[in-house]
Amino acid sequence: MTADKARSDKATVEPARARIDLNADLGEGVGDDETMLTIVTSANIACGFHAGTPADLLATCRAAVAAGVRIGAQVSYPDRAGFGRRFMEMSTPDLIADLVYQIGALDALARSVGGSVTYVKPHGALYNTVVHHEQQADAVVAAVRDVNPGLAMMGLPNSEILARAERAGLRVITEAFADRAYTPTGTLVPRTERGAVLSDSAEIARRVVEMTTTGRLTAIDGTVVAVDADSICLHGDTQGAVGHARAVREALAQAGVEIGLTRS
């Protein structure tokens, strides 16, 4: 059996989900956070290292608490100039220290307005790096565990980061992306490649319903790949983001899928 055939067979037997969490990257100062908080159930709030000022992050935490939206710390490389989208070689102690700092700062801001950080999601280049990079994946897991072993880790299914998080005793939240193209191996097509970011709201909504109800989607080359997601990311910083998010939520409702947290 070929690898593509095996992936296709697996995709046909993934269980359908009757409930799905919707998350968005917020607090970055580049999107309509107020409206997105009426659509999503989880907020990945920036921690200041790739975007966001303390005042912005505090306001975003306050708005998330008011909306009843779960707060996650969106940690990143120290790369404000590149919006956290450039890979950085970092030693384990340095990366752990940076991440502990970010999680702790955001949690303090959240607690000051009656909330708390309940999960961690890497941002940008760090997110993509820890899919395969063992040393940095270990550092992220260590930082989360050191801050609070009750925190969950959000990431791509079958990634190094989630495998290591589970082995360390952390809860994991598997994630898929509404507006990003996938490779045949189930990873995201790099943003530098043509077709990596989808822009048609109807197509985005159709894909999310497909991956949620069937456990599969079509990769950029036409391959059918399995997708096991607890949460769907709706990027808040892309053009037309609010329209995409509304279309996704409406399409899921029409398909009979409940919107909400699938894991505590």
Rank of each mutant, 00 (worst) to 15 (best):
R191G: 03
L57K: 05
D138C: 08
V147Y: 09
L198V: 08
D79P: 06
V189K: 05
I161G: 04
R19C: 13
S116W: 00
V141K: 05
D179I: 06
V140H: 03
R80P: 03
I232N: 07
K5I: 13
A108D: 08
T262G: 08
H132C: 03
A247G: 14
V144F: 04
G84R: 02
T238V: 14
E193C: 12
R62I: 12
E14A: 15
L198F: 10
V144T: 09
I204F: 07
N148T: 00
Q254T: 15
S8W: 12
S112I: 07
P54S: 10
P149A: 10
V225W: 00
L26M: 11
S112R: 07
T2L: 11
L217S: 05
D146P: 00
G124P: 08
T129P: 00
L106D: 03
A178D: 05
G82D: 01
S112F: 02
S199V: 15
D94R: 08
D79E: 07
L261S: 13
H123G: 00
L109R: 10
Q136A: 14
R194W: 11
T53H: 10
V227L: 06
A142C: 08
E258C: 08
I39P: 12
A63E: 04
P78A: 11
T213K: 11
L106H: 05
A176Q: 00
T238C: 12
R191M: 03
D4I: 15
I173L: 14
G124I: 02
A46T: 02
A125H: 01
M88I: 10
L126C: 02
R111M: 07
V13P: 04
L99R: 02
D94S: 13
D94T: 12
F177V: 05
T212G: 11
A241Q: 12
V197P: 06
F177L: 08
T192D: 07
V248W: 10
D94P: 02
V100I: 14
D56E: 15
Q135R: 15
E28C: 04
V40E: 06
V144M: 07
G104T: 01
S8Q: 13
A51D: 06
F49V: 01
V224Q: 13
Q239V: 14
S231R: 02
L126Y: 01
L151Y: 06
Y101A: 03
L106P: 05
R7N: 06
T118E: 12
Q136H: 14
L109P: 09
I103A: 00
D94F: 01
T238Q: 11
V65R: 05
D9E: 15
A219F: 08
Q239S: 14
E134K: 15
A51Q: 02
I39M: 07
M90N: 05
R207L: 11
V225F: 02
A110K: 01
I161W: 03
T187H: 09
A202H: 14
L22Y: 03
F83E: 00
A142T: 14
D228L: 05
E34Q: 15
A73K: 01
L58N: 06
V208K: 07
P157G: 09
L106Q: 03
R167G: 13
